[in-house]
């Protein structure tokens, strides 16, 4: 269940984000919705979002040291960052992902 969004013109590099969920739970759905909205708002055209359902691919949980669900992992740019929870707090998500809102204006 991948939703890669084709990257278009980028300023620097493409952001690679991975969202780990476990089935279509309320938290997972909320998190995905929140994430998409932030990305569209701030990273439009220069991000790749991968959604991994651990119920389908449980073997992938160990790779990114996933414990909490949902977990958002920023693979690129390094360093790896993890944000857990339903991403309802926009400010903290942006700080956590190190996205400068100023860029997106």
């Amino acid at each position: 269940m991948e939703t890669p969004l084709a990257p278009t013109a980028t300023e620097d590099e493409t952001w690679e984000l991975r969202l780990y969920v476990a089935g279509q739970t309320v938290k997972s759905v909320t998190a995905l919705a929140n994430l998409k909205s932030y990305c569209e708002q701030h990273l439009k055209g220069r991000y790749k979002l991968e959604v991994i359902d651990l119920l389908v691919h449980p073997q992938l949980a160990a790779g990114d040291q996933i414990l909490a669900i949902p977990t958002l992992v920023r693979k690129v740019p390094v360093p790896i960052r993890k944000i857990i929870g339903d991403l309802s707090n926009q400010e903290r998500v942006l700080v956590g992902l190190d996205i400068r809102p100023a860029e997106s204006k």
Binding site: K27, L54, I84, S88, G96
Partner: peptide
């Protein structure tokens, strides 16, 4: 490495262990 925003659970741990 971990930032916490909103509701979550440890289903990932369960899945890994399971």
């Amino acid at each position: 490495e971990i930032e916490e925003t909103g509701e979550y659970d440890l289903e990932g741990l369960f899945i890994r262990l399971g």
